[in-house]
Each structure stands twice: as structure tokens, then as C-alpha cells.
Amino acid sequence: MTDRISRAFYDIGRLEIIAGRDSFVHRLDPRAKLLVTVFFIIAVVSFDRYAVAGLVPFFLYPAAIIGLAGLPVGYLFRKLLIVSPFVICIGIFNPFLDLEIMVNLGPLAVSGGWVSFTSLILRFSLTIGAALILIATTGFPKVCMALEKLGAPRILAVQLLLLYRYLFVLIEESIRMIRAHALRSCSRRRPAFRVYTQLLGNLLLRTLDRAERIHLAMLSRAFTSEIRTVRRFTFGRAELLFTLTAAAAFLLFRTIPVAELLGGLILEISL
């Protein structure tokens, strides 16, 4: 089990390192990236359930950002794969329930269920991909600060920052605990329930103590009741250009069936 936890640990770490790189996209104001991501997701999910061709042009956005920011495609793709089971499990009922033939591809008759399933997978890849790309180009702390600047309650932003900070500390602590347990319990891979509650209880105790020590550390640096930061973001010309271009492109892809028009054109020319 420590393997799994360590993997999660390094996984978050890797995403953070990628977010620490420098590129045009990384340098943009986080608010711009957050807004564009939201536009993107809304545009993608607003298609009806049988949309396939209409969704395809939207892959331009992740491709462009991945290119511009130099993100590792394989890594992002693997992350997508890991979380895909839930959507696949639920979506896979579509092909079995919606049997009406919708498209014939030569000898192959494709039912509405398969079309909507394909659409579901495309949607899933696009929306989750967009969220991953946001984090990989911005970093979690900046996303939190952007949230706050866009009107989220301050306490929520502070929460998120503290949670993120101590995530690493606590994951390391739980890895140490589980390792200690594993070393002294020869056969069992996972702790039995009684041991489990004690493990967790101890982790919780340590966590509560730590919260107290952090509070103490805050107090000794003149903390009153509010956590303040001085970050200033500038929503300049680059941000405006980025946001408007992206929004215009999404609107275009949403209203004009780009892929179908292009396909029609090619058919016409080639035949």
C-alpha cells in the first residue's frame, strides 16, 4: 500500500514541478487561464449527447497549450487513463441500451449507443484534460489566489492553500506509519480494522497537535485572524489577447460544424 501512496505523492510532486516551468502560458495571469478553462468546459459540455464531429476541433486548445507550454503528453494521457474507469463503467451501458442504428460505415452498423459513448469519452478527455492543463501550467497556489481574486471567500482560499501545504507533510507521515506497520506484520498487506482505526486515530492526533503548533507559529508572527498575501497579478494585454482568442475560437467551434464542413469540402474536391 505504501507504493500506492508514494505514487500519489510523487504524482502530485511531478505536476507541481511541471507547473514550475517557464513558458508563455505559465507566465499568464492565473485568472486568464482559469476563465479560459471554464469557457472551454462549458462549450464542450453544451453539445448534445450524440455530438462527435463537433467536439473534435476542441482538441485544438489542449494541443496548442501542450505545445506552447511544453507539457509532457504521455504523462497527462496516463493521468486521464487512470481516472477513466468511472465514466467508462457508466457510459458502457449506452451501446447496450441504445441499439438503434445511426450510422453505417460500410459493413459496420453503428448504433446510437456507440455514438453517444464515443461522445462521452471525447467529452471526458477534453474536460479532464483542460483541468489538468490548468494545473500543469499554473500551479495550485496560484489557482487558489486567482479564485480569491475572482470573488471566492477568502477563508476558502486560505483553506485550500493550507491543505495543499500540509498534504505533503501528512502523506509522508502516513507513509512512514504504514511502512512501520508493514514491517512488523509479516503476512498481512493491509491492516485489519482494529489496527486501522488506531493507525488513523494516531495520525489524527498528530494532525491535531500539528494544527496547534501551526497556530502557535502564526501567533508568534503577529497573526490576528486573517491571512494576508501581497501577490499582485496583472491582467495585461497578453492576458486579454489570450482570453479573447480562446473565447472566440470556442464560440466558433461551438456554432460552426468545422469538422463536417471541412470533410464535405474534401469529399467534394477529391471526388
Binding site: F140, P141, C144, R213, M218, R221, A222, F223, R228, T229
Partner: peptide, 18 residues
């Protein structure tokens, strides 16, 4: 316990801001 902010800068700035 003492470094509770998300970057070194924010942490060192915490006290002066207060």
C-alpha cells in the same frame, strides 16, 4: 510547523504583513 504558506516568499512576508 513554522512554514505554513505555499511559497518561501509568502511565508517570509507573513509576519511583516501582519
Amino acid at each position: 510547523d513554522q512554514l505554513f504558506m505555499s511559497t518561501v516568499f509568502d511565508d517570509v512576508a507573513f509576519g511583516p504583513l501582519n
